[in-house]
Amino acid sequence: MNIVVAMKQIPDLQQIRIRNRQPLFDDVPLTLGTIDKNALEAAVVLKEADESIKVTVLSAGNEEVEDTIKEALAAGADEAFLILDDALEGADSAAIAAVLAAAIKQMDGVDLILFGEGSGDNYSGQVGSRVAELLNLPQVGYVSSMEIKGGQAVVTRTLEDCDEVMEIALPGIISVMAGLNEPRIPSVTQILKAGKKPKEVLELDEVDVDIKKLAFTETISNLAPESNRKKIVVKSVDELLQGLRSENLIGR
């Protein structure tokens, strides 16, 4: 069985600083999306139970992805398939989906494609569904547990007020939630070996997608919110209650 895990390179969110309401990215390290790491972990767990499974990590982004992706190879992916072009940085969900779908078409016999339910940075949460539509594949989102057997995936989706157990036929696409598992931290040996694992690197024109035509949305501005929080540190429970009552937040 061939499993593809789509992962996105993102800045380390903790380390983004704000100056004059502008997010600053200087010296902010790059990593892979947190929930994407859950998707990878799920694939690696399946592989550990069945040695015949091959796990390919798939990513589209700028040139730096080639280095960032080592994190995924260290954490258990067998190989990487990358589409690199600086024009892909910050590209629309629809553009990234088209590039990933085109890449998947170039791979042989893919049975399962895993996504995190949203990227850490933009958190738009659309790419998995868009790729499924482009490839005309069954798909299921917001999966908190999954079991693969006999060409089927049986998954639990955790919704607002219920868990829903669903089955889809494979090949198919599953996007997972963070609660699915605890991603492993690779050992030093695994990190050293990661650099030697196979990587297929394509340029954007090798997948035949015109991303300019897929700019369906346009970002007008990205600014830190102006905080109007009171930030009052109260000394006692009485003072807290007074504050809450004066805002009509609790009964008198």
């Binding site: 569904s129 539509e133 989102g141 917001y142």
Partner: peptide
Amino acid sequence: HTFNGRDLGSRLAQKLEVGLATD
């Protein structure tokens, strides 16, 4: 922007080949 709402919106947006602003 519920789990089902964004699931539906995303795949529909691709079928229609349009953009979608989530959340």
